[in-house]
């Protein structure tokens, strides 16, 4: 349902979409039924000349059945939704599968800094790749992320991953994702963070393994320090 408009591009996106579909089916059915009964009663019992309304207190069990039955149904369906909601939640927020790589996300008013571990796959080493407003990842790899803020609350949201997590200054909040689709997608800040809140777009670029290798090669500080062939040519002139 959601994936018609927003592709699901992470390993857990499908599970969240299914949960949303399940809730839609359950509440949609009961909502239509309730509205149907409601409108039917309004039409059926519209005032008619000389017809007096019935006197029903609704206090005895036989009458009360009409509200207590749907009442129990609500409880049963609530429990079903709870089970699936908690399962999806645990998958996204309470498990941390083994990581292939870790990235650091630093939010500030009003930009994102993404620290990629570079060829040695370790953060805080000289070959880290720091980029503003661009996060590069490889399809099929499991990533851990570390969220940090330099000033106020921000929120790291990747709608195609069905992932969202607030960033709290003074803390490092960890989580994970596994991209399953290549392409470029929005990263949004979804917690109001001042007057530039609407100007904090970033992109996540999910590459195939080869593309990712090429990108990493090109961006490694050691490589990036060297002039590109084009620049060398320019220098010769």
């Amino acid at each position: 349902m959601i994936d018609q408009y927003v592709p699901n591009a992470s390993s857990f996106a499908g599970q969240i979409d299914e949960l949303i579909l399940l809730i839609t089916a359950i509440v949609g059915f009961w909502w239509l039924l309730a509205e149907g009964v409601f409108f039917w009663l309004i039409i059926k019992f519209n005032a008619q000349e000389g017809v007096k309304a019935q006197y029903v207190s609704g206090e005895n069990a036989k009458e009360k059945r009409w509200v207590s039955m749907p009442h129990y149904a609500t409880l049963v369906f609530d429990v079903i939704i709870m089970i699936f909601a908690v399962k999806a939640w645990q998958e996204v927020k309470q498990t941390m599968p083994q990581a292939d790589s870790t990235v650091r996300v630093i939010a500030q008013q009003w930009a994102w800094t993404f620290v990629h571990p570079g060829p040695d796959n370790l953060l805080d080493t000289p070959d880290d790749i720091r980029l503003v407003d661009e996060l590069h990842v490889e399809k099929g790899k499991t990533y851990h992320f570390e969220l940090q803020s330099r000033d106020v609350l921000h929120s790291f949201s990747v709608p195609v991953f069905r992932l969202k997590q607030d960033i709290v200054p003074g803390r490092t909040i960890r989580g994970w994702f596994k991209p399953t689709m290549t392409g470029g997608f929005d990263i949004q800040c979804t917690e109001i963070c001042g007057i530039g809140h609407g100007f904090m777009p970033a992109r996540i670029l999910v590459h195939t393994p080869e593309e990712f290798q090429n990108w990493q090669q090109a961006k490694s500080p050691a490589q990036a320090a060297l002039p590109t062939p084009a620049e060398q040519m320019g220098g010769m002139k």
Binding site: I16, L19, M82, F84, A85, A88, W89, V92, L163, T190
Partner: peptide, 9 residues
């Protein structure tokens, strides 16, 4: 439903 709220929040 906490799982769905991750997306809708």
């Amino acid at each position: 439903a906490s799982g769905a709220d991750i997306y809708f929040h």
